[in-house]
Amino acid sequence: MAIWVNRDTTVLVQGITGSAGSFHARQMLEYGTRVVGGVTPGKGGQRFEERVPIFDTVAEAVEKTEATATIIYVPAAFAADAILEAVDAGVGLIVAITEGIPVLDMVKVARAMDRSKSRLIGPNCPGIITPGQVKLGIMPGHIHQPGRVGVVSRSGTLTYEAVWQLSALGIGQSTCVGIGGDPVNGTSFIDVLEAFDRDPETDGVIMIGEIGGTAEETTADYIKRSFRKPVAGLVAGRTAPPGKRMGHAGAIIAGGQGTAAEKIAALQEAGVHIAPAPSALGETMKTALSRGRAG
């Protein structure tokens, strides 16, 4: 079960002949992901690794392969176009790995997707993985274990850190979703939590936030109101100075809004078990599972 992706998911890779795209397409195939096609305009008719057919357009790829998901590795300047091409072709799940897309491009993409049935995960994210079944992303597959804890995060390597801590404690994961570090993205914490709430194979969730914006505060409201499973949380950036962009375009504290302290307070209020340190995420989840909701 898990959420959104499983062993039946069939995947296209947009930008499959680029350096990142080809490397990760190979990694995904090794993990067992059903990569059914690639898209690189002008290279239609060729094959990737002698087995995956390449198409000129996403529409043609969808028609011929009936892919249910796509993953985007095209460079930032062309990424908004690639996302909207996938939306137009009716792909249900679109995962955008690309980092550095101009914000105003994403404002237009978000507007264009207003009434779309497609789900966009990212951009600037590590992707989504249901351990043991399917990987759509750049995360190291081998640190994951199939299990019953969901992970949702704005950060890449910090998610790996959380997964690694869980696996070391023998706690497997149902699905791990990186929603991305950009200010405008397709899938929110709440979208993911709603799916985890409905998923009978997820018992609890780790949520990793960071400074900037108010997504964590809004999510805290939602958790308090309607989320029924235990949550362990972390907010990165307690020591970040205001006004500086900490790597992620979204990670900037502006005008006293979006500080780690405010976010932590809101999440605690909502019954989230906050990890006392980034190294204690796994242990905190373990406690949360045994005790239920905090506070």
């Binding site: 950060s155 990165a236 992620h248």
Partner: peptide, 26 residues
């Protein structure tokens, strides 16, 4: 550090351990 989130978390844990981060570097 590699990764922005992990870099921020590393700064946080340095502070928690009684030090002060000299930089953010991803």
């Amino acid at each position: 550090v590699n990764g922005a989130g992990l870099a921020m978390a590393t700064m946080d844990i340095i502070k928690q351990s009684g030090g002060e981060p000299a930089n953010f570097l991803d």
